[in-house]
Simulated assay, not measured.
Amino acid sequence: MRHDPAGAALIIMLRSLKMPGMAQAVQDLLDQGAPAFEAAMPILSQLLKAEMAEREVRSIAYHMKAARFPAYKDLSAFDFAASEMREALVRQLHRCEFLDGAENVVLIGGPGTGKSHVATALGIQAIEHHRKRRLRPIGSGLALW
């Protein structure tokens, strides 16, 4: 068995795509040192990268649809000057680090203060950056957990 970084990358991609049979077949072909396979590795690598990218796009689209956000919102359209929310705190929350510690975020304020806008922006950020947490609608707001 010889070490081939390109072959190891193929195996990692196949395993991440949940294709263990193909990963084992690639390992066997690498062990055999098949010249035809080595010539095909760049093409196979490109195909696997395309599949991984497509799955990521589909996953984001699925989670965005499942979250049922009222509209697409992000922080670039939020007017911090017209809100009582602290911009630094909201931007810190936007990094979604609170998800790693399974912490809750509660937005409290009167009508028109931007709670829904910020909650939606946080949810979208979490989905787009693949934070593996669930989003669940609660009444007219969202809960992240």
Score class of each variant (00 low, 15 high):
residue 32 Q to F: 07
residue 136 R to H: 07
residue 22 M to K: 13
residue 25 A to V: 00
residue 32 Q to G: 02
residue 81 A to Q: 12
residue 24 Q to T: 13
residue 138 I to G: 03
residue 66 A to L: 10
residue 2 R to M: 13
residue 96 C to P: 00
residue 63 H to N: 14
residue 68 R to E: 15
residue 59 S to K: 09
residue 94 H to A: 14
residue 22 M to A: 14
residue 32 Q to A: 15
residue 61 A to H: 11
residue 103 E to F: 06
residue 144 L to S: 06
residue 48 L to Q: 05
residue 101 G to P: 00
residue 143 A to D: 01
residue 45 S to K: 10
residue 11 I to N: 02
residue 38 E to R: 09
residue 46 Q to L: 12
residue 58 R to C: 02
residue 35 P to H: 10
residue 47 L to E: 15
residue 121 A to Q: 03
residue 90 V to C: 09
residue 68 R to P: 01
residue 51 E to H: 07
residue 81 A to H: 10
residue 81 A to D: 12
residue 35 P to W: 08
residue 68 R to N: 15
residue 105 V to H: 07
residue 100 D to A: 12
residue 105 V to Q: 03
residue 11 I to Y: 00
residue 6 A to S: 11
residue 132 K to Q: 14
residue 106 V to L: 15
residue 1 M to T: 09
residue 90 V to M: 03
residue 81 A to S: 15
residue 13 M to P: 00
residue 27 Q to N: 10
residue 25 A to I: 01
residue 49 K to V: 12
residue 12 I to H: 08
residue 108 I to S: 10
residue 130 H to Q: 12
residue 65 K to M: 02
residue 104 N to H: 10
residue 32 Q to R: 14
residue 77 A to E: 10
residue 137 P to H: 06
residue 19 M to W: 06
residue 118 V to L: 15
residue 133 R to Y: 01
residue 82 A to R: 15
residue 120 T to P: 05
residue 40 A to S: 10
residue 141 G to W: 01
residue 71 A to K: 02
residue 40 A to C: 00
residue 1 M to Q: 07
residue 118 V to M: 06
residue 102 A to M: 11
residue 69 F to L: 09
residue 135 L to G: 07
residue 75 L to S: 06
residue 63 H to R: 15
residue 85 M to I: 00
residue 109 G to R: 04
residue 40 A to M: 08
residue 57 V to E: 14
residue 64 M to W: 02
residue 77 A to Q: 13
residue 105 V to L: 04
residue 49 K to H: 13
residue 123 G to H: 04
residue 142 L to Q: 03
residue 14 L to F: 10
residue 45 S to N: 11
residue 54 E to L: 11
residue 87 E to F: 03
residue 134 R to M: 06
residue 73 K to C: 09
residue 48 L to I: 07
residue 124 I to F: 01
residue 125 Q to G: 01
residue 52 M to N: 01
residue 34 A to G: 00
residue 88 A to D: 15
residue 24 Q to N: 05
residue 35 P to Q: 08
residue 1 M to F: 11
residue 49 K to D: 13
residue 73 K to N: 04
residue 82 A to V: 01
residue 127 I to V: 15
residue 99 L to A: 12
residue 89 L to G: 07
